[in-house]
Simulated assay, not measured.
Amino acid sequence: MRWNMLVLASCLAATGCVGNSMSERQDDNIESSLQYDTVPCDQLLAQRNGLAQQYNLPTTAKPTFSNPAMGFGPFTPDVRSKAQRDTDKATGEIDAMNRSIDRRNCGKPDKQKKFSLPG
């Protein structure tokens, strides 16, 4: 009976971490870049630069992930401050914007076509 109670208590403790774990919340910071493909290039560049400036991040920011010990990621509670969570979310948005910018070649001047005589 004691063994069953111990297992039940540990299961309840583990389920209490679901939704608030470090690895789960860090995964939420990754965004799809497809949502930015409909935004005009100049507006997207301005939006990315403004977000980077607001959070004092470089325009080349990429999300980072913690390295929990030996598979305890889903059970490690997220103890980051709200400011750090907001900065990490902004990093994910900047990265998604950068992927859209790179894919569409925004901000790069068009290659000049050289005119030459045939022959």
Rank of each mutant, 00 (worst) to 15 (best):
A69G: 07
L6G: 02
S100N: 04
W3M: 09
R99Y: 00
D102A: 05
F115Y: 02
T15Q: 10
P40N: 13
T87Q: 13
F115H: 07
R48D: 01
A14F: 07
D27N: 13
S66Q: 03
M70Y: 10
D28C: 04
M22Q: 11
A14C: 12
D86F: 12
I30L: 11
S32T: 12
D110G: 03
P40E: 14
L12G: 12
P109M: 01
S100L: 02
D95I: 00
L51G: 10
Q35A: 14
C11S: 09
A90W: 13
Q47C: 00
D78R: 01
A83W: 00
C17S: 06
L6A: 07
Q35W: 05
T87R: 14
T91V: 11
P77F: 07
K62S: 13
L44P: 01
S10G: 09
G73E: 14
V39S: 07
L6Q: 02
S10H: 10
D95G: 02
A46T: 08
Q84S: 06
A83Y: 00
Q35C: 01
K89G: 12
I101T: 00
L57W: 12
D28L: 15
D86N: 09
K113S: 07
F115D: 03
D28W: 10
A9P: 13
I101S: 00
S66Y: 04
D110A: 03
D95E: 03
P77C: 02
C17Y: 09
Q53K: 13
A96V: 14
Q35P: 07
S66P: 11
K114A: 10
F115R: 06
N56M: 07
K108F: 05
L45G: 02
N4M: 15
D78E: 01
T38Q: 11
A90C: 09
L117W: 12
K82N: 09
I30N: 04
A13D: 01
Q43V: 12
P68R: 10
K82E: 10
N20G: 05
Q26N: 00
L51Y: 09
E31L: 13
V79W: 04
K114N: 11
K113P: 04
S100W: 02
Q53F: 05
P58M: 05
E31H: 15
S66W: 07
L8K: 01
P63S: 13
I94P: 02
W3T: 10
T64I: 14
V39D: 06
K62I: 08
L45A: 01
C41W: 04
G19L: 14
E31R: 12
E24T: 15
P40G: 15
G107K: 08
R48L: 00
S32G: 08
F115P: 03
L44Q: 01
M70C: 06
S100F: 00
T38N: 08
S23V: 15
L45P: 03
Q26K: 00
